[in-house]
Design a protein around this nucleic acid. Sequence first.
DNA 1: ACAATAGTGTCTGTTAGACATTATCCC
DNA 2: GGGATAATGTCTAACAGACACTATTGT
Lengths: 259, 259
Amino acid sequence: MEEHSETIGSGNNGIGSLEETQEIRQRRALAELAEAEAHHYDVNKYERPSVTVDVLMMSLRQRDLQILLIKRRSWPYEGMWAIPGGFVMMNESLEAAAKRELQEETGVQDVYLEQLYTFGDPGRDPRTRVVTVVYFALLDSERLQVRAASDATDVGWFSVYELPQLAFDHQGIIDYALNRLRNKLEYTTIAFNLLPDHFTLRELQSVYEIILHKRLDKRNFRKKILSTNVLEDTGEKKMEGTHRPARLYRFNPEAEHKL
Amino acid sequence: MEEHSETIGSGNNGIGSLEETQEIRQRRALAELAEAEAHHYDVNKYERPSVTVDVLMMSLRQRDLQILLIKRRSWPYEGMWAIPGGFVMMNESLEAAAKRELQEETGVQDVYLEQLYTFGDPGRDPRTRVVTVVYFALLDSERLQVRAASDATDVGWFSVYELPQLAFDHQGIIDYALNRLRNKLEYTTIAFNLLPDHFTLRELQSVYEIILHKRLDKRNFRKKILSTNVLEDTGEKKMEGTHRPARLYRFNPEAEHKL
DNA sequence: ACAATAGTGTCTGTTAGACATTATCCC
DNA sequence: GGGATAATGTCTAACAGACACTATTGT
C-alpha cells in the first residue's frame, strides 16, 4: 500500500449552499467547469483520453523474479505479450481498479501495491489516446503457488531477465519498475512482501540476490538485517534436506524501521 | 527532465498490413478495442474520466521555498488557492501539457520537470471524475525574478511553510512533493535546478537548508559537496557587502555523479 | 582596526565490505 | 564420519558529524 493514500483525503467537502440538490449542483458544475477553465479549452468540446490501469505483478518463482503477462489476441501487437490492465470505472479509485485487475488475474488480495508511473504519450497505443496509470504488485510466492494451475494458456509467468518481445511501451515500463524495486529494496522493507509469513535468513537473502541480480556476502547480509531489528525470531526451525536446520523469522512491522 | 522519458519509446510502430490507410486502421481499431477488452467493459459505453495535468512550480524566493498558486473563482472551493493545472489535449504528451502549463503561468522554459504522482480518487473533484497527473517544476530564482512583476492578482507565490487553505486534495499533493524533493536532495543533484548558473557554496547550502528546513554545518557541507566533484570553480568571485568575496562555482553535468 | 562573511582540518564513532571457521542435522 | 547448509566475528577503509579558528574584503 502506497503510504501516500492516507495523507491525501478525497476532498469531497464541496463549498456551496447546502440546500442545493446533488443534481442542480452537478449541472451547474459542468457549466462552471467549462467557464473556469475557459482559457484552456472547453471540456465538453474535446475528446477525452481513455484512462487505464496496468498492473505489473511480480513474484519469486523458481528462484527467479517473474512477472505475469497476457498474450494479445488482436491488433495492435497481436500475439505479443503485455502487462495486464483495464479501464478505470467512473466511480472506483485508481487503486481500486488496480486491485480489481489483480483479483481478476491472480485471485489474490491484500498484497503490496504501489503506483509506479503514468504513461500517456500520444501514439503509445495506435488505437486511441490512452493514459495508463501503472501499478506494481508484489505477490508472496507461497500463496501464489496454489493458484498457479488455474492460469489460462494466454496468461503466463516470465522471468524479468528473459522476456519475450512486449507490446506497446511495456518493456520500458518493466525496466522502470525493476529500477524502482531495486532502489526500494535498499532503504525500505519492501522485500518482505515477496516472502511468506515465516522465512529463513537464507530465503530473505535470496530475495535480495535475485532482485539485485548479484551475490551478496552471507555474513554481512545477516549482520545488517539483524542489526535493524525488523526480524523477530519465531523460535521455530525449518528443516529441509540433510543438514542443519535454519531458524524461521517473522517480519516485525512494529519496527517500521527503514533499512 | 525525468530520466524515464528517454527509455520509454512512444511505441508507434503498429503491426498490420502496410497497405491499410490510417482511416481503415483507426476504424478497425475501435471495434477491436471493444472486443479485446470485452471482459472488462465496452469502452464506448462508459463515461471517461477527465484527465488533467497539475504543475507544482517551486522556487526559492526571499530565502524561502515558495510555490505558485492560483485563486479559484468559482465553485467548488471558490476563493481558495489551488495548484495550477489544465486539461490534457488529445495529441500532446503529459509532459508537453505540463510544459504548456508552466509556460502559461510563468513564461519560463527549460526547467526541471518531474512527474510526481497521479491522483484519481472519485470525489476528489465534486464536479466530475478527474484523474490528475501531477508534475513538479523547479525554477531557478534568477530567471524568475524578471517575470515576477507580470503576475496577475489571482496568482501568487506562497511559502510552503505558510500556506493558505487549499482547494481539493492539494495540500496533500504539496506534502507529497516536499517529501520527494527532500529525499531527492540527498542523493541527486536536483538542487542545482533552483540556482542560477553561477553560485557560491553558501548559496547552495542555503538551498539545502531551506528545503530540509534545518541548519547544516558549513564545514561538513562543503567537504561533502566538493568531494563529489559536481562543482567546477569558475575562477570568478562574488562580492557583496563589506567582506571577503566568495568563489563562484558552476554545476558540472559531466559528473552525472550521484551525491 | 573593525565588521562581516569566506574558507579550512581534526578527531571520533559508525558503517560497509572483505574474509574462514565452527555448528548441527541426517544418513 | 561424511555431506550439506546454518551460523558467527574481526579487521580495515570510508563516511558522517561535532567542533573553532584564520583569511579577505570595504570602510
